[in-house]
């Protein structure tokens, strides 16, 4: 009787001790990575967020999550909170290139590895962080060059409109530079008649394309700096009677950047010709790996470049596995 009572009481007494020491049945405590995103207001950021969480789980990390809702001050507090909690690494999407510098310095002072996801910092050599960024300029140039080749194959000169992003956003500016570089090298094939600043706003984009098509009905080549603006373009093309699939008469050569779900659908339907895809999975993997490397004592690389890839109707079957938008649509 005594022994049976002891056998019941022993685990009951041991349980709180196990809880206090953190050595329960789930095993030793996992290292934690603090993930702070500036916003989750676009599909791309949500895909990146999910990819990072998945990669953290795959590499044996727990995740502490935070979203700053576009507020750099709030993000600074979140990073400080991560530091107070003594996380083992920080991955962040900064609001912009400047405001993240004090956050990086704070992490550096605490000796916590920090990685910037998809947006670099405008900082001097005294701060230590790894930026995992897409080659916005190079990838946009490749995408537009592919579109130019398509235009050349038709044997006639094309008239283009370009939709620019927010000119205060480094990614938007880099994509503009990439598009301009490709188009300036092909004056024989394409002439740009409209450069539409959208400020990443769908309504401005729609109005801009409608007006450009009104002023230049001959426009037959459109590049957008983000696939998120594709619904605005298709709406404008539909109202102008210029929405035709590739191969049909009157088709407008259409290209974009990002690789979202709308781009994937339009490409499958035959309306979108090419888009530059940021490899979210590559960037997430490299971000978590950079934390692991720094924890292992390796020096932090200042930047890791995601070369991305151009997806078009010729290679979509083979590349779809890497295109994040092909897996996030409804």
């Amino acid at each position: 009787m005594k022994s049976s009572r002891r056998s019941i009481l022993a685990p009951l007494c041991a349980a709180p001790l196990l809880f206090l020491t953190g050595c329960g049945p789930s095993g030793p405590k996992k290292p934690v990575i603090g993930v702070s995103f500036e916003t989750l207001q676009t599909e791309f950021w949500v895909a990146g967020y999910d990819a990072i969480k998945k990669e953290c789980a795959a590499q044996g990390y727990d995740v502490a999550e935070a979203v700053a809702d576009g507020d750099a001050g709030k993000q600074l507090e979140q990073i400080r909170s991560f530091i107070t909690r003594k996380v083992d690494g920080i991955i962040m999407v900064p609001k912009d290139a400047k405001t993240c510098v004090p956050m990086i310095k704070a992490a550096n002072a605490a000796g916590i590895p920090i990685v910037l996801f998809n947006r670099g910092a405008d900082a001097g050599p005294d701060v230590k962080a790894t930026a995992v960024v897409a080659d916005n300029t190079g990838l946009t140039k490749l995408t537009v060059e592919y579109m130019v080749e398509m235009a050349r194959k038709t044997g006639r000169k094309h008239t283009a409109a370009i939709l620019l992003g927010d000119l205060g956003d480094l990614n938007g500016v880099a994509r503009r530079d990439g598009a301009e570089a490709a188009l300036n090298a092909a004056p024989d094939a394409v002439e740009v008649v409209a450069r539409i600043p959208t400020e990443w706003n769908q309504e401005k984009a729609q109005a801009g394309v409608v007006n450009a098509l009104q002023a230049h009905p001959e426009i037959d080549f459109i590049f957008t700096s983000s696939d998120f603006l594709l619904p605005s373009i298709t709406s404008a093309l539909k109202s102008a009677g210029k929405y035709h699939k590739a191969g049909e008469p009157g088709h407008v050569i259409l290209g974009g950047f990002d690789g979202d779900a709308t781009a994937w659908r339009l490409m499958q339907e035959g309306y979108l010709d090419a888009t530059g895809v940021q490899d979210v999975y590559f960037e997430a993997k490299q971000s978590v790996q950079a934390i692991a490397d720094q924890r292992a004592g390796k020096a932090a690389a200042p930047s890791i470049l995601d070369p991305g890839f151009v997806i078009h109707r010729g290679n979509m079957a083979e590349k779809s596995a890497q295109m994040w938008g092909a897996h996030t649509g409804r």
């Binding site: 207001q41 990443w200 309504e203 998120f228 605005s232 298709t234 709406s235 709308t262």
Partner: peptide
């Protein structure tokens, strides 16, 4: 706006 865009995005009506 919906009549012009034909789509709802997370940034619909922003600012």
């Amino acid at each position: 706006v919906l009549g012009q865009l034909g789509a709802v995005s997370p940034k619909f009506g922003l600012n």
